[in-house]
Each structure stands twice: as structure tokens, then as C-alpha cells.
Design a protein around this nucleic acid. Sequence first.
RNA 1: GGAGGGGUGGCAGAGUGGUUGAAUGCACCGGUCUUGAAAACCGGCAAGGGUUAGCGCCCUUCGUGGGUUCAAAUCCCACCCCCUCCGCCA
Length: 428
Amino acid sequence: MLDPQLLRNDLEGVVAALARRGYHLDMESYAALESRRKSIQVHTEELQNQRNVRSKSIGQAKARGEDIEPLLAEVAQIGEDLKQARHELDGIRAEIERILLDMPNLPAADLPDGADETQNQEVRRWGSPRKFDFEPRDHVELGEVLGGIDFDAAARLAGSRFAVLGGGVARLHRALAQFMLDLHTRVHGYREMYVPYLVLDSAMRGTGQLPKFAEDAFCFDGDPERYLIPTAEVPLTNLVADQIVEASRLPMKLVAHTPCFRREAGSHGKDTRGMIRQHQFDKVEMVQISAPAESQAAHEALTGHAEAVLQALELPYRVMLLCTGDTGFSASKTYDLEVWLPGQQTYREISSCSHFSDFQARRMQARWRNPATGKPELVHTINGSGLAVGRTLVAVLENYQERDGSVRVPQALQSWMGGLDTLEPVID
RNA sequence: GGAGGGGUGGCAGAGUGGUUGAAUGCACCGGUCUUGAAAACCGGCAAGGGUUAGCGCCCUUCGUGGGUUCAAAUCCCACCCCCUCCGCCA
């Protein structure tokens, strides 16, 4: 949520900034709404003041043993007026609130302008795609050859967009998650967390998934107040909702491995082959809760932590700075990490590292006590995948395959695989 | 699921209809004292919102939402959460 104060003081600036990311805010009607709010609120508070003053004097008169009947008559009408004014104020406040909840974050100043992903800016590249002396298979074929990925079985169990993993592939999937967690906790200083996979709507609202993107999430048992998490960002970030964190506890660096559930409502027909886009996938998620002054550096560092996973696995990737139009609703700035997939001959997103400024914090009322002022102030939140486990599995399979369909286990993973160095094909 | 107890400021904890936004303690900030620190003493210290050039003034908030009343932390109703005991259970 944007600062309502900012909308009052610099509406033009906000409108212009939002226009950069393709969001149209009707300045005239918002300003009109705001001025109506102002006059009604002033009127309402005036009535409340009158009531308070008179009630108090009734109390005092009574204490002195005076007759309070005339005073009661005087105050009789105020209650009715107040009720009506309050009702009107509630209505207009709700309307403003609804608009604010639907308004995306302001893009950071250094984002490239652009309408979609074609305008994203490559920041850097690491590694170079391996040259194959045979036609590389994609992970779907490799999964078949290895006898380790079964989409048919998954469809029979759960419908489309699920996968069943087995044997060495299932183990590799587990090894990847363990490896990532251990890297982030031991080397990067994150605290490992275990969190609920089912959260209240208030948590979803806090991080920005609701109310606007309700159709993307699975709700639980038809209950619009309980949702399956679409990412561990939701429970991890909301740990500080309604909290005032002492400065000494910042930055908070949290990591969790969880399943993620997404409806993929808007992506029919997209990535239907393979396990790139699933209703359920595992992800290791990093979250940082930061003091505002340190948040930009924290965002860069966190992006580096995600990159470290790819580097350790020796998977070639590039870092993209998302343009204004491709940056997500709640984010002010996002780096996507895209890993090279030989099966598709292209870079595909495997991590998204975002800086949310105080946008989520304001929704959550997540604050810290600034030692400089002694006052509670909003924190900044940052998160990123470190990494999406399913997509990392895909990347390992495709990048480490051999002519016969076997897949070498990356050096860094072997100790998490009980020393196993190769997944052998079961068919040829 | 049954029975009981409880949700008040950063924390602990008083407060059962009227100058109570809320005693007291801790924490925190400033000062006195001290070579320095601690202790002691003095003073300050809730958040959110509105309005104002500013001093300030005003409103709201005692789990949440309704209700009673001129007036609610305090009375009534519903809901949520936590704790204790019993039952059940991975």
C-alpha cells in the first residue's frame, strides 16, 4: 500500500510514477474523493467533540448534585447527527481503502521503462551454455529415460500441472532443497524456519496477494479466509506483521523450504509441457526484514545469495532487471535470475528477487523502533527464491545429461546424494 | 469435543459507568551525582488519524464486531485468540 499522506501531498507525482508501470490512476476523481473525505471527517470529529464536551459537563453537574435535565435535552440531537456523519465517513473511507489496496507499488527510479518482459534489462551473465556433441533432451524426455518423472500418473491422481517424481530424481529433488537450505543457513546467515502452509486472508493481504489476485490462489475448503500459500514469502514476511521489531534484531534473514500452490489461472496453454509451471512446486525462499537505509544493499546481497546457488551448481544464468511494466504488483524493483535450459535453448526464470520498500510493511503494519527517533517506523521487506526447486531440478537434468540419457550429479550435490555421482537410465 | 480462567501501552500489570489515554513497575531517552560505569535521585516517554505555516487543538484506539447510555476499558450480545484441566489424537 502506498502512503496515503503521499497521495495527498503529491498526487501528481504518484500518478506519473504509476503511469510508468502502466497503471492509470484517475487523478480528478481521487482528488474529489479525498476532499469529500476531508470535509466529512472534519464535520464528524466536530460532532464527536461536542458530544464529549457535553457528556463531560453532565458528569460534572451530576457530581455537584445539579439538575441535568436541561443538559440532556441539549445533547439529544447530537447523537443522531453523529450516527449519520459517521456512517457517511465509514463509506468513503472504505472506498479509499479499496482503491489503495488495488494500487501497485511505485517503481524504483532506476527501472527501465517498458510494457513487458521484452524491455527487461540484462544486468550480468554467469557461465556459458555447454556445447553438446549430441542433441540434448529436455527434462520430460530425460524423466522418462530415467524412469523418474511421471506426468501421466500425476494427471490420474491430481489432474493437469502436477508431477510425480521417483527414485533418483525424487532424491535429487530433495537433495537440491537440502543443499539450498544448508547454503543459506551456513554460509549466508539466514535462519531456517518451518511455517504453516495454510494462512489467513489477512496474511495474504499483508504481502499483496489479496485482494487483487484472489483467482491465483487456492483457498482452503471453499473458505475465503484461508489459503494455501503460493510462496513462503507470505508466512515468512508476515512474521513481523503488527510487530514493532527492536533495531538490534535487524536485519532479519529468514529462509524456508515449502511447497507452493498456484492456480495458474491466467496461464492456460502456457508451459503445459513438463514441470516448468505446476499447481504445486517446492521452493526455498529467502526473506529479509530490513531497516530502510540498508534495504537496497540487502536486496543486492539477497540476489547474490540466490546466484550463489546457481554458481555452486555450475548452472549458467543471467540476471535481468525487470522493466516497469513487468515488475510485480507489490515490488518496487525486481531482479529475475534466468537459468539456461538446453532442452529449450533459452534462459528461463528460476528466481525472482524483489525489493518492496515499505509497501508490504504498511499493509502488515510491520515496524521497527528507529533508535535515532525512538519512534516506530515501517520496515522494508525483501524476498527472493533461492531457488525454485522444481525448476532447478529441470536445469540440473538438462545441463548435466549425457548422450545415453544418464545425468551426472553436480559435484556440490553429491554429499546430499549419499555420494551418488550419476543417475542411470532405466530404458534406452 | 467438555469444564474453567484470561486478552489493557514496547513488556509486566492495576483499573467494574463520568476530567481514565489509562495507576504502578520494568525498559527506553535526558539531567544531577561520579575519574568512568553502576546505584540513587529529578524529569520525559503510547499509537494511529485529522487540522494548522507553526505552537497547538481535535478525533479514534483497552482482542474483533455489534448493542445499551448524554457518557463504556468498565454493562449486554456474538465471534476470534490464548492459558489450565479432562477427553481424543500423528
